[in-house]
């Protein structure tokens, strides 16, 4: 019984960790490629065009 509980806890921690890391990835992707702040946009301009991201 104890083992089952531990195993379930480990599994959900694993999925939560994966979700957390995926969210970090999406956040970095949004800042680098999609945020429309003028400063970010100008700095990232050429790379956004060159990755095919929607740009301005």
């Amino acid at each position: 019984m104890n083992t089952t509980h531990q195993s379930a806890a480990k599994t959900s921690t694993g999925l939560l960790s994966i979700l957390f890391v995926a969210l970090v990835g999406v956040t970095v992707l949004f800042v680098a490629g999609h945020a429309q702040s003028a400063t970010l946009h100008d700095a990232a301009h050429d790379m956004r065009h060159a990755t095919g991201f929607p740009c301005h």
């Binding site: 890391v21 990835g25 970095v28 800042v31 680098a32 490629g33």
Partner: peptide, 21 residues
């Protein structure tokens, strides 16, 4: 061009994090 290098690294870093997830 320096900003382009920086943002290429940043963009692919986000891809790298997502692929490893």
């Amino acid at each position: 061009n320096a900003l382009t290098v920086l943002f290429a690294a940043l963009t692919y870093t986000s891809f790298g994090i997502l692929i490893v997830a």
